[in-house]
Design a protein around this nucleic acid. Sequence first.
DNA 1: CCTTAGTCCTGCATGC
DNA 2: TGCATGCAGGACTAAG
Length: 266
Amino acid sequence: MPELPEVETIVRTLWPRLAGRKIQGVSLRRADVIFPDRVNLAGMLVGRSLADIRRRGKKIVFALTDGNRFYIHLGMTGRLSLQLAHTPPAPHTHLILRLDGREIRFSDPRRFGGVFWLGKNGSADEGLGPEPLKMRRTQLARLLRRTTRAIKSALLDQSLIAGLGNIYADESLFAAGIHPSMPANKLSARQIARLSRGMKQVLRRALRHRGSTLRDYRDADGNAGDFQKLHRVYRRAGMPCVVCKTAVRRIVISGRSTHFCPKCQT
DNA sequence: CCTTAGTCCTGCATGC
DNA sequence: TGCATGCAGGACTAAG
């Protein structure tokens, strides 16, 4: 599932090559991936140029030179790719933006993702907490102090911290040596410090490895990431902890599978 | 406040 | 071999 490192990698592979390009045409193959559904996307996009593409949380935010903006959320299985126009589109390609000889294509088999029109006034920050890589330890402490939920659950809450998903929440908690069930407001100052550091370290490493490809994720050029090889707990239930050899456990928190080492995480 | 369960959806793994 | 079933989960909603 694309989380912060995957989404950031897509933006980094997309934007440098698309700066200023004009959208020549729009092919909407499934109208129900557009929100709100009344938006005439083609009418708003054709003839406009790309002023910016950036990431906010897990959103890919497109800015047009006329001041309008929209974002794409990839959900579970969404992909955004830059391909030559003559390449046959992958199955479940819902939206195509034709540029010069190339196209930006949005595909998403499971359709948990979508294209969200913001217009000139809508904000991509809506519903999102701060960026984890820009967060200071004190800010993290402030956020976590005011909730009693399990820390794992808090890390997944985009309105608290924007960009972590199931993989990086589990990996961050392992890096910090914190049990995922621990109530967020019970973390010691020391644990907060370890989490602040561990979370950023995990995200930066994942960025360096261009994200994690378990099945679906690819960057805009179709390349897989390789951080999945460095996962220390995620989807490693029953396998020995890389630090202490204790079997990694899998439990369910907030309906999400959660992986941790019972010895290293307390 | 919190949690759980259900919803959306398809592809893949499993089991008979 | 082929079918049915279960599971994965990001974000949201409803219910308890």
